[in-house]
Computed example of a mutant assay.
Amino acid sequence: LRPCYLFICSFMVAAPIFGYLGDRFNRKVILSCGIFFWSIVTLLSSFISKEYFWLFVLSRGLVGIGESSYSSISPTIIGDLFTSNTRTMMLSVFYLAIPLGRDSWTRTAGLAGSSFLPRRGGAFKSKQRAGWLVPNRSYVFSSLASAAVSFATGAFGIWIPGYLFRARVVQKTAEACTKEICSSTDSMVFGAITCVTGLLGVVIGALTTRLCRQKTERADPLVCAVSMLGSAIFICLIFVVAKKSIIGAYVCIFIGETLLFLNWAITADILMFVVIPTRRATAVAFQSFTSHLLGDAGSPYLIGLISDALQQKYTTSALWRFLSLGYALMLCPFIIVLGVFLNNSSLFMYY
């Protein structure tokens, strides 16, 4: 987990710096330099041998720095180019790169697109809040709700495959594994589900928001709140059905993650609406910082800590090892429900 955590921490710390620079200096230069640095480090890290694992860990931190420049500035360019429903759709196309893997085509797209940058706020026609971020309560609440989503996705990515493997052991369809690294198909299946649900969630979120805007001006936070509540319900059902049916658990994971991923593009669109163009890069960066700090930077460790504490007295029981991890993961839907309330707060401050 060390490379993963170093990547998240370096990404989180560097994002506000690049956000500040992106609002004040040439975004084309910052974006291009970040992508070039990120790509070179990724290429060179593929030649690191296992004797220099510490160097590989360091390279993950450097990749995080390069990626933070891209992730902080790119959405603001889209926000300057488009407005209203068109902006939502374009942000959705951009965020499709997350489940597909940003290490592939987003760098190429970023290099090509950086030659055609608009002026800041070039397509800016909507209402705005105050120029700085802390007094902007819509921004603060939507960022905290985004952190709730990040908390759940971070914990799920690390622990759900292991939880499903423990379920198989309880069902006696798999042998208990005492090795540090265990062979299981659950990681591959869960990864494939996450890819598909990420794609579906972003597309469904954009289309749903577009339809709801015909009925209410507050469609964005409303769709986020409803989808998060539905996601929390299906995530709770995972821990109910997993003991009896792995297939049932996968169905609940599929629906729960799809509903959870509806928020990606919509949250970015809310930010574009409530923050003035000359502060958008800073806003995106601090939202990213908050999401990682309160979300996936600590949630896997916290879940593991709770699970270890619960199973301390019954370390030899396969059933209790399964149940203790499930009880710890139940924290995720509660955090998501907290995000629902934060989105509701944003709902009443949105205009």
Rank of each mutant, 00 (worst) to 15 (best):
V240D: 12
Q128D: 09
P118S: 07
V170W: 03
L133F: 01
T197G: 03
D220I: 13
A155G: 15
A123S: 13
F156L: 14
G256S: 15
S114K: 10
V149K: 09
G162H: 07
L207T: 13
E175F: 07
T216H: 01
P161C: 08
L222I: 09
S245I: 10
T209E: 11
A176V: 05
I235S: 05
I247S: 15
F156V: 14
L222D: 00
Y250K: 02
G248E: 03
V223C: 15
S227C: 15
F239N: 11
A219M: 13
M228H: 10
R120P: 13
F190G: 03
G205C: 08
T209Y: 06
T194V: 06
M188E: 12
S183V: 14
T153C: 10
F141A: 10
T178Y: 05
A130R: 12
A145I: 14
G248N: 07
I181A: 11
V251D: 00
Y163T: 06
C252E: 03
A112H: 01
A249D: 02
A167V: 02
S231L: 00
I247E: 15
T173W: 05
A145P: 00
G157T: 14
M228A: 07
A225T: 02
G248K: 01
V223S: 13
I181P: 02
R213M: 13
T208A: 15
V240A: 05
M228L: 15
L237D: 04
C212M: 11
D220A: 14
G122A: 12
A145H: 12
S126I: 14
T153M: 15
R213S: 11
D220F: 03
I255D: 03
G157Y: 10
A123F: 14
V149F: 05
C224G: 07
G154P: 09
A152P: 01
M228R: 01
A130E: 08
S231I: 01
A167N: 02
Y163G: 06
S143H: 03
F234K: 04
G122R: 10
L211G: 04
F124T: 08
N136T: 15
G122L: 11
P118M: 06
K215H: 08
V251G: 01
A145K: 06
A192Q: 13
V203E: 01
V251Y: 00
E217N: 05
A167S: 09
A192L: 15
G113N: 08
I160Q: 05
G198T: 06
R120E: 11
R119V: 15
F165D: 11
L207I: 14
E175W: 04
K172N: 14
L237G: 04
R137N: 07
T216V: 13
I246L: 07
P135R: 03
S245K: 05
I255E: 05
I238D: 02
R120I: 15
V189L: 05
C236G: 13
G113F: 08
A152G: 10
D220S: 11
S231H: 00
S227V: 10
K243V: 14
I238G: 04
L200C: 11
L222G: 04
L144C: 07
Q171H: 08
R210V: 10
A167P: 05
K243M: 14
G162L: 06
C224Q: 12
N136R: 09
G256K: 01
I204R: 02
S184R: 07
L222Q: 09
R213H: 09
K243G: 11
